[in-house]
């Protein structure tokens, strides 16, 4: 068994192996394409699609138009082009999802690593996690947004204030899954020989965590992160849907749906387009998470 390595192809890197497995997952590729299209639609869309600005009289005449060539998704009750609003709303919705995910994952990883690595902190931090899991999240988020919105808006303006408030409220209420996963991984990793070796040559806990433990917990964290994005987008749209999210001039998909509800019976398209956008985003993110889980699992990969 000395020279079985007659294969002259360059050794497969982890990244290419993961990508190869990921590409086999049809749902995940579908998700990637759809999410890509939605991101292009909302990020680049407003640069390309700029309907002409209307005067008040013109806007009054062009309100509640059905979909047409000039307005592919029709116009709303104030004569605004619905497609442009969908694009701008998409920017906010996606941004909320990603920023809240980053907050949740950073917080979750920090707490998970601390709990897993330092035994003295474990009990307290895990009780904290349990407590957060037992909090009624939607009611609390509603309360937080409602009660603190005006205060925060007073400091940094209504739009930025609402964004920061909602993003951080979602972030600090959804880190628990990531923390639990990371803690479990760290507990297993820190008993490995290479960690022992590193510690025995005098590496500080900080170095052990940053060099040896964190790189190895990245894959489960990535899967948790994708699910977190989906969750955050849904939570934000729930808040907006209940009328407690962003201010009216600052559209998100949930907000557009909420506004469309009043005109639902005459203009169902106004509800269906934002609803479809939210559902497609969440669906594709969930599929990507599914594919990532398979691709990053060494037991499945390579079969």
């Amino acid at each position: 068994m000395t020279d079985t390595n007659t294969d002259l192809r360059p050794p497969e890197t982890l990244r290419s192996a993961v990508w190869a497995q990921f590409r086999k997952h049809k749902g995940a590729m579908f998700g990637l394409v759809v999410l890509g299209l939605l991101v292009v639609f909302s990020v680049l869309g407003p640069l390309v699609w700029q309907p002409e600005k209307l005067s008040v009289a013109e806007a009054l005449r062009s309100k509640n138009l059905p979909p047409s060539f000039a307005h592919p998704m029709g116009t709303d009750h104030l004569g605004r082009d619905q497609m442009q609003r969908m694009m701008l709303a998409g920017r906010v919705s996606l941004a909320v999802g990603f920023v809240a995910m980053v907050i949740a994952v950073v917080l979750g990883t920090l707490i998970g690593v601390l709990a897993g690595y330092f035994r003295r902190l474990d009990g307290a931090l895990m009780r904290l996690t349990d407590m957060f899991l037992a909090l009624p999240l939607i009611p609390l988020l509603l309360v937080m947004v409602m009660l603190f919105r005006d205060r925060v808006a007073g400091y940094i303006g209504p739009e930025m204030g609402a964004f920061l408030l909602i993003v951080s409220a979602i972030g600090i209420t959804s880190w628990m899954q990531a923390a639990r996963i990371v803690r479990g991984e760290v507990l297993a990793l820190k008993e490995r020989e290479y960690v022992l070796a590193s510690r025995s040559i005098g590496a500080t806990p900080k170095r052990v965590i940053l060099r040896h433990i964190l790189p190895n917990v990245i894959s489960p964290v990535m899967v948790a992160a994708t699910l977190c994005v989906a969750e955050a987008i849904i939570t934000e749209s729930v808040l907006s849907f209940l009328g407690l999210g962003f201010p009216p001039d600052f559209p998100t998909w949930g907000r557009l749906l909420f506004e469309g509800l009043d005109y639902m019976e005459s203009y169902p398209a106004r509800v269906i387009f934002p609803g479809l956008a939210i559902s497609l985003t969440v669906l594709s993110v969930n599929y990507i998470g599914d594919g990532l889980r398979d691709a990053l699992d060494p037991r499945i990969r390579g079969r």
């Binding site: 729930v238 639902m264 509800v271 939210i278 559902s279």
Partner: peptide, 9 residues
């Protein structure tokens, strides 16, 4: 993936 407020509407 489809939120209940959308299935509901």
């Amino acid at each position: 993936s489809v939120p209940t407020f959308f299935t509901g509407t």
